[in-house]
């Protein structure tokens, strides 16, 4: 049992390595015919069993019409194989950023799919460990889908290989392809409540009178990835304008410094989690804050931009930007 599991693990690892080797990282990939794999499904095994039963009937009753029907089903099986293969063919897959998430949540990446001159039916998209999204596109239609990948640790995260598969039209074959998109997400630390914030010095407080907050509507701002969708102005979107977000202002509370040195008793990741919690809490309370990390310091400020910057700094701290093979190769592509 254990041995079997280890063997399975080993197989998966080998396969993932093979897939990664065969599919270099790209921004965009057209699924040409050489990238499509195809194998019969379990339903095909049932179908073949049916064919055998029918063949037996035909042989034993010497019934040529049953022979004919059996051969028709065999032919349909073969033709459907070509159709299944063709369904995926020439689909264009493009990486389109990600939705920021906290550690432990499923990471969410956006992928843009563009159908070729024929429809793409029943396309299943999945990252390993993530959920399956099903998509059907008419000829030359395109769509952006948000895909959930496996949950990640704080820091930089890559969703791994994207798998596209479909069984259309008869479910007797499954065609699939792998795409290794250049997709990197920064994962914020998981907020952990706790601790008390030491009182901060008053020098930075004086300048600010009003910061972005929750109370009074102050205007609209263009949507950027990461903005809370709860504040989206759906009304303007319906009028055909780009998606905008309502901005609110709020009276200022007293400001605070968030420092790496505050909770020496905690481990490294717990400190990130604690800081993250306080960033979010101060944002909720609409209080300006500054962030001091070993390699980076954010000056005292408030508002959405400050929170974004703080969360990003928390995510990036301590992890050097991964050197990617794709970067080296990209020159040759141009």
């Amino acid at each position: 049992m254990l041995f079997a599991r280890r063997l399975k693990g080993l197989y998966r690892e080998q396969r993932a390595r093979w897939v990664a080797r065969r599919h270099p990282e790209v921004e965009q990939q057209r699924i040409d015919k050489r990238r499509i794999y195809i194998l019969p499904t379990a339903a095909c095994a049932g179908f073949v069993l049916l064919l055998l039963v029918m063949l037996l009937l035909a042989i034993n009753y010497e019934n040529n019409l049953i022979y004919g029907l059996t051969f028709l089903l065999v032919s349909v099986l073969l033709v459907s194989m070509v159709h299944t293969h063709n369904n995926l063919r020439d689909t264009l897959v493009t990486a389109r950023g990600y939705e920021p998430v906290y550690a432990g949540e499923k990471t969410r990446y956006r992928v843009h799919i563009c159908a070729p001159e024929h429809p793409v039916v029943g396309l299943n998209l999945t990252y390993s460990g993530g959920q399956v999204s099903v998509l059907t596109l008419a000829a030359a239609e395109d769509a952006t889908v948000e895909l959930a990948a496996a949950p990640g640790e704080r820091g930089q995260h890559s969703p791994g290989t994207l798998k596209l598969s479909a069984r259309y039209p008869m479910g007797l074959f499954r065609a699939w392809s792998y795409v290794n998109l250049k997709q990197l997400a920064w994962i914020y630390p998981k907020p952990e409540p706790g601790g008390v914030l030491p009182p901060s010095s008053a020098e930075a407080d004086a300048a600010l009178t009003e910061v972005v907050g929750n109370e009074e509507f102050s205007g609209l701002e263009e949507y950027q990835p990461g903005m809370p969708l709860g504040r989206a102005a759906w009304g303007t979107l319906a009028r055909g304008l780009p998606l905008q977000v309502k901005e609110f202002t709020e009276p200022v509370g007293d400001s605070r410094w968030l420092r790496w040195s505050f909770w020496p008793e905690l481990g490294k990741e717990e400190r990130f989690s604690r800081l993250c919690y306080w960033v979010l809490r101060l944002e909720r309370e609409n209080r300006p804050f500054g962030l001091e990390l070993p390699s980076k310091t954010l000056p005292m400020a408030s508002g959405r931009a400050q929170v974004q910057a703080a969360l990003l700094a928390l995510a990036q701290e301590g992890s050097e930007i991964r050197a990617r093979r794709g970067d080296r190769d990209s020159g040759a592509d141009e």
């Binding site: 042989i59 010497e62 040529n64 022979y67 004919g68 051969f71 028709l72 065999v74 032919s75 349909v76 073969l78 033709v79 459907s80 159709h83 039209p169 008869m170």
Partner: peptide, 18 residues
């Protein structure tokens, strides 16, 4: 799916020995 399968069926019907 069926129409392209028909010539294939005829072929199998004619050639597969009974």
């Amino acid at each position: 799916l069926i129409l392209p399968a028909l010539p294939m069926m005829v072929l199998l019907f004619l050639l597969i020995p009974r």
